[in-house]
């Protein structure tokens, strides 16, 4: 067995930089010169390259189609929520919209401070009205759905952590589909429906946000609530639309749509389990 020569030792000190292409040209030429005449160092380089290739191969794992779809939806939602400046026209409109909504809310004393409340500080930064304004933004400008039939909608339960189902009898509202709505680390589902009827604005639509109230917390700042059977429904507004918030059997719901408060209240009755 031959001990490495002085030359080998010198080369082995920089062999990794040589393999990684981090040496300057003069050192590379030196290295190539040495490996051309030294089988041992040549093998060392080839083994190093083979291992690099193996690691690279191990780190090749394309996302599944489902995950990719969810990811794209989440990113598109974020883009829709915050269109680029300097041409911030759409954003300005949204800001004005929420000011109007905010003053309306104050005047109507439907004061509400929804927040995402968990011990995780990173979630708190999501801001006060993020959840409900995302719901309404999503309702006004729906993104592609993750599923349009009840089976696929149900399969989204695994991401939300609470059961999903059809919330209205077919005679009252038609299921359009659902998609996952990410809030930082948490996920909720938005289930969309169409109300029957004709005339201007038809078909009117309803969006129901379904979430795990232990993870996404919509905490009321006031005690204004309406009793609906054994449930307490809190009515608020976001960007001009009414939102009815309710918890039932450990599932959180927020319903919004092309309706007024009275109709929202009537519709949320269906959402509660009998």
């Amino acid at each position: 067995m031959n001990a490495p020569s002085q030359e080998c030792r010198a080369f082995l000190r920089v062999v990794e930089s040589f393999i990684d292409g981090e040496l300057d040209p003069a050192a590379i030429i030196e290295g190539e010169h040495h490996t051309a005449s030294c089988a041992s160092c040549r093998e060392r380089v080839m083994l190093g390259r083979a291992m690099k290739a193996s690691v690279s191969h191990l780190a090749t794992s394309p996302m599944g189609d489902d995950a990719r779809g969810r990811l794209r939806n989440a990113l598109a939602a974020e883009i829709a929520r915050t269109p680029s400046s300097p041409k911030r026209a759409p954003r300005v409109r949204m800001v004005v919209g929420s000011i109007v909504a905010a003053s309306f809310a104050a005047a109507a004393a439907w004061l509400f401070a929804p927040r995402i409340g968990t011990p995780n500080a990173s979630l708190a930064e999501a801001g006060n009205d993020d959840v409900l304004s995302e719901l309404v933004a999503e309702h006004v400008r729906p993104l592609p759905l993750d599923g349009t039939d009840i089976q696929t909608v149900r399969s989204l339960e695994q991401y939300v952590g609470v059961p999903l189902r059809q919330h209205f009898p077919a005679s009252r509202a038609k299921l359009v589909g659902a998609r996952i709505l990410p809030f930082q680390h948490e996920r909720a589902a938005i289930v969309q429906y169409e109300l029957g009827g004709t005339g201007p604005g038809a078909p009117r639509r309803i969006s129901v946000l379904v979430f795990d109230p232990r993870r996404i917390h919509l905490a009321p700042a006031s005690d204004i609530a309406q009793q609906l059977g054994r449930h307490e429904v809190r009515m608020t507004r976001a960007q001009g639309l009414p939102v009815a918030v309710m918890e039932d059997e450990g599932i959180g719901y927020a319903l919004s749509g092309d309706v007024d408060e009275k109709q929202a209240m009537e519709l949320v009755r269906y959402v509660a389990s009998p």
Binding site: S40, E43, R44, M46, A50
Partner: peptide
């Protein structure tokens, strides 16, 4: 050895 490295590589 070079042989070992070659064996590991291929």
């Amino acid at each position: 050895s070079a042989d070992t490295m070659r064996n590991l590589r291929e």
